[in-house]
Structures are given as C-alpha cells and as structure tokens.
Amino acid sequence: MAMEFPVIAKLLEGRFPEAVKGAVTDKGDPWIEAAADSVPEVLEFLKEEEGLKFDLLLMVTGVDRPDAEGGGSIEVVYHLLSTTEGHELVLKAVLPRENPVCPSAVPIYPAALWHERETFDLLGVEFTGHPDLRRILCPEDWVGHPLRKDYEYPEEYGGISAK
C-alpha cells in the first residue's frame, strides 16, 4: 500500500527527532531534509522498515547553491522508490559549500556507486566510505567541478584550445 508523503514524514520525524530537520512541501515535489551524518541510518530505516520498503535508489545527485545563507551550500538529493509498495520519496542533505562531505550510501544501496562518483566528479562532493571515489564522466586529470555555479571553463585541455 502506497503511503502518502505526510505519513512518511511523520514516521521519520518520530523515529529520528534529531536527524530529520523537517519536510518541505510548498516547492514542487515534497522532500525531507536530514542531517548529512545521519543519512546512512535514515536510508537503512527507509529500506528495511515494514510498510516503507524503499528498495530502489533511483539516483543520487547534487545542487550547488552558492547564495544560500552561511556561505553557500551543496544539497545532496536522493530519489527513492519502492517497487513493492509503490511510493516515492525525496531525501536531502544540505552540506556546507566550503567542505561538502557526506557519508556514502553504497553500503546500503550499491546503486549509489556511480551516482556518487558522478556527484563527486561534477559537483565536488566527497562521499566518505565510498569504495572507489574517482571521476567518472570527466577525464581523471580534469580540473574543477563543472556543475559548480562558479566553475570557470578551462583555456585549454591536453593542448587543445577550449575557447
């Protein structure tokens, strides 16, 4: 039975009163914000708990917000799905832009393996505990993270002009 978002939000807030920082429902698809260091346990709960059973991690991605208060932030966004119950959920962790570090979701969802590498590659988020955190789409010697809002295009790459 598919659960509605407010029910899931309440369940999470009850279970993790410290880690869950609240639900946002007035900006398109609703999401739940959780403290970065608690992401693995929240994900574990979402995956295992009877009635929730979010068994499929659709993607992990990031959004750069340099203008957010407190020196800017990078949001890490998890899109989850339950193939048995039929509900979806968006979970977010907001990291400081200066030092974006987040525990890896790979031990819970191996599907995060490449998504986290991509988020590291394009946005520069470091996932601690990731077994193989390297660039994935850009070449290994690429400089910078292209999806950061202040990214500067290189003058040249490998002797080829990039202008």
Partner: peptide, 9 residues
C-alpha cells in the same frame, strides 16, 4: 533482490 539494490529499471 540484486536487481533492486543495484538500481535496475
């Protein structure tokens, strides 16, 4: 189980 865990669709 593997298919779900690895994000197959």
């Amino acid at each position: 189980e593997e298919a779900r865990a690895w994000g197959f669709t």
